[in-house]
């Protein structure tokens, strides 16, 4: 891995650290998966404790090893050849170049700086919609746990829609 790519990946990791945390727990976290992904490229230790570069005692098989196994063996798991090819095509391949990484860093910066929210400002018309002015605020309150829905407010929504 060339060093500009590694530098780019490090920059990306720094940017990702600035990402806001998700307000509720989802099955997969964007921040976490991408951090792991770019840390691996940057050669930093990932959360699962493995590093691509060092001679660390990584016991998990790498993607390449799995690919190799699939290639060497004739139809492991009793899978057919075309199925194997499909599987291989589905294996993620990250091919970073200096340029592509720079583009991604730029995009990440744009996202973090709220570029589009500010540029395409929709104003109170959509943020506090006339038909249901408190709609978004209620969602945010619920998410942040500031003001939870009570049984009464929930029933009101069920019957009156807002």
């Amino acid at each position: 891995m060339s060093s500009p790519v590694r530098e780019g990946a490090k920059q990306m990791v720094r940017l990702l650290e600035r990402m806001p945390d998700e307000r509720i727990k989802h099955l997969v976290s964007f921040k976490q998966t991408q951090m792991d992904r770019f840390k691996r490229v940057a050669g930093l230790p990932t959360s699962s404790g493995e590093s691509d570069t060092g001679t660390a005692s990584v016991k998990k098989p790498t993607v390449n090893e799995i690919k190799d196994i699939l290639n060497r063996t004739n139809g492991p798991l009793g899978m057919k050849k075309d199925m194997l090819e499909k599987l291989q095509a589905a294996i993620p391949r990250d091919q970073f170049t200096d340029e592509s990484l720079r583009g991604q860093v730029q995009s990440m910066e744009n996202l973090l700086s709220n570029k589009y929210k500010n540029y395409y400002d929709v104003g109170d018309k959509l943020y506090h919609p006339a038909g249901n002015p408190g709609y978004y605020q209620r969602i945010m309150n619920e998410l942040s746990g500031q003001k939870r829905e009570s049984f009464f407010t929930a029933m009101r929504t069920v019957f009156f829609g807002k």
Partner: peptide
């Protein structure tokens, strides 16, 4: 904000794919 919207897009439209181009 945009970052949260991007996360929502990633989770839904991109199906939480790992190797995604941030652009």
């Amino acid at each position: 904000d945009d970052a949260t919207l991007a996360t929502a897009v990633w989770r839904n439209l991109f199906g939480g794919r790992k190797n995604i181009d941030i652009s």
